[in-house]
């Protein structure tokens, strides 16, 4: 619900706007925990906004607001009408509206993170919504998931395998996961995390800040 009262429909080439980072992956893999960690780690140095896509409540947005990692007004929730993957892939209008509302209210921003509603392995972000995307799996889904592939695992700009602290408990072999992921992803990076053990998600935050730097170099506002 972004009540924008100005004409700020952006040109689609991305110049002069924030990097848009999609965070997707199956239900409960730790997407919201990762978004909170990124806000914690990057918030002091970057100007951020967050859009959440909850399935039937505003739970994720409320969690992030309560966590106090970011000003509450910089977090917007979008409803997705039973179809979380539609809202990030086929009909991105409501998400774009929310992203642009944040940029308009608080801009210029460096980074807008869009968390998708937890869905299945086929849900990926449209390039019209996210410039970069992270796909978050967790080890408790089983160490076979990277082998099964799917567009999220295969094509995301970064694959995060979270909850490594649980690996011994669920009998997941991280070596197998790393090998299978490398097989389907080629050169694309994979990071193993335990946000429980490292609430700053330092390795992922490094990757994101590097992407933000690269984006701001290539998409600076032309000097007028």
């Amino acid at each position: 619900m972004g009540a924008n009262h100005d004409d700020h429909h952006h040109a689609p080439d991305g110049r002069g706007r924030a990097l848009r980072l999609g965070v997707g992956g199956p239900v409960g893999s730790g997407k919201t925990a990762l978004v909170a960690a990124l806000c914690r780690t990057l918030g002091p140095s970057l100007s951020l906004g967050v859009v959440t896509n909850d399935i039937y409540t505003t739970e994720d947005a409320d969690f992030l607001r309560r966590a106090g990692v970011l000003d509450a007004e910089r977090i917007l929730a979008v409803e997705t009408g039973c179809c979380p993957h539609t809202a990030i892939r086929d009909d991105i209008a409501a998400n774009l509206d929310a992203v642009e509302t944040l940029e308009h209210r608080f801009g210029p921003l460096d980074l807008v993170i869009v968390e998708s509603g937890g869905d299945n392995l086929t849900a990926t972000f449209s390039r019209g919504l996210a410039d970069e995307q992270i796909f978050v799996l967790d080890v408790s889904g089983g160490d076979k998931v990277p082998r099964k592939g799917g567009p999220g695992v295969t094509t995301a700009d970064l694959l995060v395998v979270n909850k490594t602290d649980l690996a011994p408990m669920v009998g997941a072999d991280l070596g197998v996961m790393a090998r299978d992921a490398a097989k389907v992803r080629g050169q694309r990076p994979v990071l193993f995390t335990s946000i429980r053990q490292d609430p700053t998600a330092a390795t992922v935050a490094d990757w994101v800040s590097e992407r933000v730097m690269a984006w701001s170099h290539t998409h600076a506002t032309p000097v007028s």
């Binding site: 209008a93 409501a94 509206d97």
Partner: peptide, 10 residues
């Protein structure tokens, strides 16, 4: 399928 957000309204 017109991508104008209609899918989220009932």
């Amino acid at each position: 399928r017109l991508p104008a957000g209609g899918h989220a309204h009932s």
